[in-house]
Simulated scan of single mutants.
Amino acid sequence: MITVRKAAERGQADFGWLKSRHTFSFGNYYDPRYMGVSALRVINDDRVTPGQGFATHGHRDMEIISYVISGTIAHKDSYGHVKDLPAGEFQLMSAGSGIYHSEFNPSATEPLHFLQIWIQPAITGGVPGYQQKAFAQTEALTAVVTPDGRDGTLQIKQDVTVYRLILAASEQLTLPLTSTRTLYLHLIGGELELNGSKLSTSDGISITDEQLLTVNANNDVEALVFDLP
Results as ranks from 00 to 15, higher is better:
residue 2 I to V: 12
residue 7 A to H: 07
residue 11 G to N: 05
residue 16 G to V: 13
residue 18 L to F: 12
residue 18 L to Q: 12
residue 30 Y to G: 11
residue 30 Y to L: 14
residue 30 Y to A: 14
residue 31 D to N: 15
residue 32 P to G: 07
residue 34 Y to N: 14
residue 34 Y to D: 15
residue 40 L to D: 07
residue 41 R to M: 06
residue 46 D to A: 05
residue 47 R to E: 14
residue 49 T to F: 07
residue 54 F to L: 00
residue 54 F to Y: 01
residue 54 F to G: 00
residue 55 A to D: 12
residue 56 T to I: 00
residue 56 T to H: 00
residue 61 D to A: 06
residue 62 M to S: 06
residue 65 I to W: 01
residue 67 Y to M: 02
residue 67 Y to T: 01
residue 68 V to C: 05
residue 72 T to E: 15
residue 82 V to T: 13
residue 89 E to N: 10
residue 89 E to G: 01
residue 90 F to M: 10
residue 101 H to K: 09
residue 102 S to T: 14
residue 104 F to L: 14
residue 109 T to S: 15
residue 109 T to F: 10
residue 113 H to L: 03
residue 113 H to N: 03
residue 118 W to H: 07
residue 119 I to H: 13
residue 121 P to H: 08
residue 126 G to C: 08
residue 130 Y to K: 00
residue 134 A to Q: 01
residue 134 A to H: 06
residue 135 F to W: 07
residue 138 T to I: 11
residue 141 L to M: 02
residue 141 L to D: 03
residue 153 T to C: 08
residue 157 K to S: 14
residue 157 K to G: 08
residue 159 D to L: 11
residue 160 V to E: 11
residue 161 T to D: 02
residue 165 L to Y: 01
residue 167 L to W: 09
residue 168 A to T: 15
residue 169 A to Y: 06
residue 170 S to N: 08
residue 171 E to C: 02
residue 172 Q to W: 08
residue 176 P to Q: 06
residue 179 S to F: 07
residue 183 L to R: 11
residue 183 L to F: 11
residue 194 L to M: 12
residue 194 L to G: 12
residue 196 G to M: 09
residue 197 S to R: 10
residue 205 I to C: 11
residue 207 I to L: 06
residue 210 E to T: 06
residue 210 E to K: 10
residue 211 Q to C: 04
residue 223 A to H: 04
residue 227 D to W: 08
residue 228 L to E: 09
